[in-house]
Simulated scan of single mutants.
Amino acid sequence: MSTHVKKPGWFTVNVFNRTVAWLTRRGLSVWGSRVLAVRGRKSGQWRTTPVNLLTVDGRHYLVAPRGHVQWTHNMRAAGGGELHLGKNVDVFTATEVSDDDKVPLLRAYLKRWKAEVGVFFNGVGPDSPDTDLRRIAPDHPVFQVTIKS
């Protein structure tokens, strides 16, 4: 498994993520944003971070543009979590997508959010060949989200 991680800088942690999370917690989605809550794999405490919820063919996905970060490790351990948008909370289970199945999902993600996250994909964009998307697939975990009714 890849150990690729792009740690966020000060501005992202202290300004951008906090602003997006603040707006999302108040019910204003910024380009599909949600606040992901997942239990920590060691502490059992809820951990939160803003994420972009991708929808492709009626299915929902979470993509980790920064790689194998803490929320991805926690998601693997917990198998699901919660997505918050204002007062709405969707409880979900998550299944990790195999590298071979990520190409169309990474393409769709980059098509929608390249301006925001493109820098984390090492020059690969929505118009790149499948071979390039397949090459970077191990560096970017993707989880299919199934919202419980």
Rank of each mutant, 00 (worst) to 15 (best):
G86M: 03
K114Q: 11
A64E: 00
L83P: 12
R76E: 12
A108I: 09
V63K: 02
T93I: 01
V103E: 10
V91I: 01
L85E: 11
R107F: 03
N74C: 09
E116Q: 11
G125H: 04
H60L: 14
D100C: 09
H60Y: 15
R112K: 13
F92Y: 13
Y61M: 06
W71I: 06
D57W: 03
R112S: 07
M75W: 02
A64H: 02
E96I: 12
S128I: 04
Y109E: 09
L85C: 12
T93L: 05
G123L: 03
V124Y: 08
V119C: 00
L105R: 08
G79E: 14
P65D: 09
L106C: 01
G80R: 15
D90H: 15
H73N: 05
L110K: 02
R76V: 12
G80L: 10
V91K: 14
V97W: 04
V91N: 07
W113C: 05
A108G: 03
V63N: 10
R59N: 03
A94K: 08
D57K: 10
V69Y: 02
H84Y: 15
V56S: 03
W113Q: 08
H84V: 08
K102P: 12
T72W: 05
V56W: 11
K114G: 00
L110G: 00
E116K: 01
K87G: 11
E116S: 11
G58Q: 08
K111Q: 13
W71V: 09
S128M: 00
G81W: 14
T93K: 07
D127Y: 02
V97F: 13
F92I: 05
V89C: 02
L110H: 05
Y109G: 10
V119R: 09
H60N: 15
A77C: 12
E116W: 01
F121L: 15
A115D: 13
D100N: 12
G123M: 00
V91M: 06
L110P: 00
T95R: 15
D99C: 13
E96F: 04
V119L: 05
K114H: 07
S128P: 10
L62W: 01
